[in-house]
Design a protein around this nucleic acid. Sequence first.
DNA 1: CATTGTGAACTCATTCACAGCG
DNA 2: CGCTGTGAATGAGTTCACAATG
Lengths: 213, 213
Amino acid sequence: MHKKQKIPKATITRLSIYCRQLELLEFDGYRMVSSEKLAWLCQVNAAQVRKDLGYFGEFGVRGVGYDVRDLQIEIKKILAVNRGWNMGLVGIGNLGTALLKHQNFPDRGFRFVAAFDSDPEKIGKNLSSGFIVRDIKELKKTTQELNIGIGVIATPASGAQEVTNNLVDANICAILNFSPLQISAPDNCVVEHIDFTIKLDVLTYKLKYEIGL
Amino acid sequence: MHKKQKIPKATITRLSIYCRQLELLEFDGYRMVSSEKLAWLCQVNAAQVRKDLGYFGEFGVRGVGYDVRDLQIEIKKILAVNRGWNMGLVGIGNLGTALLKHQNFPDRGFRFVAAFDSDPEKIGKNLSSGFIVRDIKELKKTTQELNIGIGVIATPASGAQEVTNNLVDANICAILNFSPLQISAPDNCVVEHIDFTIKLDVLTYKLKYEIGL
DNA sequence: CATTGTGAACTCATTCACAGCG
DNA sequence: CGCTGTGAATGAGTTCACAATG
């Protein structure tokens, strides 16, 4: 398992997509699936599916395919989502409030367990999602108490770097950043960035050059 | 300008990031910037910056660098964001409601002009963002009336493909998809996908294999 | 003479093609 | 026999290194 070999970043993204499709296949009653079929569902090449899986082991049966349920479990192990994760949200604006209520997170094992802000107006407030807004100063303490593994930044760009520093200081080493700022974090901290307007820029570029509008 | 040559998708994403940094530089009073400095700010290689720009023209002055303001304008032209865009939102849940209020969109020229849902409970409702929820059946008519260029999907996975079909039927050929489903659209329609839980899966994978937790 | 613009070298990622195997 | 697993071939994207130049 997990031979020491460089694994493309895109492979990880695809594993997540395969996993989602396998759940749907299982729900639809399928027991086995071929790389060809899974590839088609995920809009990729069949060899790609096999190669992606090949980085981590041999999960298929030649002449037959992959067991829908088993493969799902294996991928979840690889992605480290065969367990729950506690998350802390920083930034209780429109987006933050919506994320706290977002059902996809708990459905996939990612639970918010605390919400933070630095605005005195907001601290102490009871949110309709059931959370009480905590002072960002309590981040370190709360992180330990509630075993927070992932920090989610939903502040405006202006506050994002300071929040990052706070998260790092609280020993959180995984950050999901919704702010439109390229935050910088030390090497022992991993960051993923979700930037809505970059995607919109890409979309309008494509409109212009691919569609010709 | 725009020599016929294959342009990496990642180049477009980076152009958007450069543009954002150039705005910050301008705000801080800078007139010129070198590829080296811009690269450092965007956490990429300096040759990368020059090559990315090189696909579209010669925007710099040798020995000096790039004019912060002019380069910004050129990139905005390339990305087709030197104009405003009207967007229609479909799916008035927690996320949709937050997107309508999200300040980053209008700040960058992307304006929501209508909000749709198929739930009779929601249709007709006045949202605090000032929008009235329209029936999804009015999508085509409203798209023409309000000149909607971009459709944003904020429904659960279950409704996403049908909404996509509706958008395509309404002649919208750019879709930003927030649902966790791989939607399929015809070739004359461009799609960008923002999937929160894929990013979380990547994050936990990295935690496990890069940080060793 | 500092910095751009760019062919060439290199690295990374995908796809092909078929041997290996249940 | 059919489908996986994988080395080899191809293709894409990044970085190097330096000639071109304001």
